[in-house]
């Protein structure tokens, strides 16, 4: 039969192990989101750069042909570059949402650490090992519930495979 000390030790190990796993998994998710943000930003910068250099080139050509009649082909190329720039601008919205998700996840982690800090105080104030064991198990349950709540709130959504048209064949 386990002694009271053994039970306290067991509960503490379970709790600390769970805490470590929870923080690690959420930090991994945060790192993943930041990586995705970097990829999207990079895509946006490349598109904007290409578009604006294209606009610059077309304007230079138009300038050289200023005395010629209206150049439809040149106008079409200008429109195409502007459309690309518009697509690039939309990445601003996408990256903003991803960064908000990262912030929300960090807020959730801080909430969990506050629970741990509170429980630590509770444990240090107890005289009975049985009470400490119960307190630690409650902390474990609270942390699990907070982690599940955070994961449900921040379910993955921003995973565009095609950074071009935005078409989704469903309807």
């Amino acid at each position: 039969m386990k002694t009271m000390d053994d039970r306290i030790e067991s509960a503490t190990v379970v709790l600390l192990s769970k805490l470590s796993d929870i923080i690690d998994s959420h930090l991994l998710e945060a790192v993943d989101d930041v990586c995705q943000t970097r990829l999207i930003l990079n895509e946006a910068i490349i598109k904007l750069e290409r578009s604006f250099y294209g606009i610059q080139d077309e304007l230079a050509k138009q300038h050289r042909l200023a005395e010629a009649t209206v150049n439809d082909a040149g106008q079409d190329r200008l429109t195409a570059h502007l459309h690309q720039a518009i697509i690039g601008l939309q990445f601003h919205d996408l990256t903003d949402q991803l960064l908000q998700r990262v912030n929300a996840r960090f807020d959730g982690l801080r909430e969990m650490l506050v629970v741990m800090d509170y429980k630590k105080t509770m444990v240090s104030g107890h005289d009975q090992a049985e009470d400490i064991s119960i307190s630690l198990r409650k902390a474990d349950e609270t942390l699990t519930a907070l982690s599940v709540k955070l994961q449900l709130t921040l379910s993955k959504s921003l995973r565009q495979e095609h950074m071009g048209s935005g078409d989704v064949e469903l309807f």
Binding site: H83, G166, D167, L170
Partner: peptide
Amino acid sequence: YIVKPFTA
């Protein structure tokens, strides 16, 4: 339903 980013 359209997913961002999208074209005209």
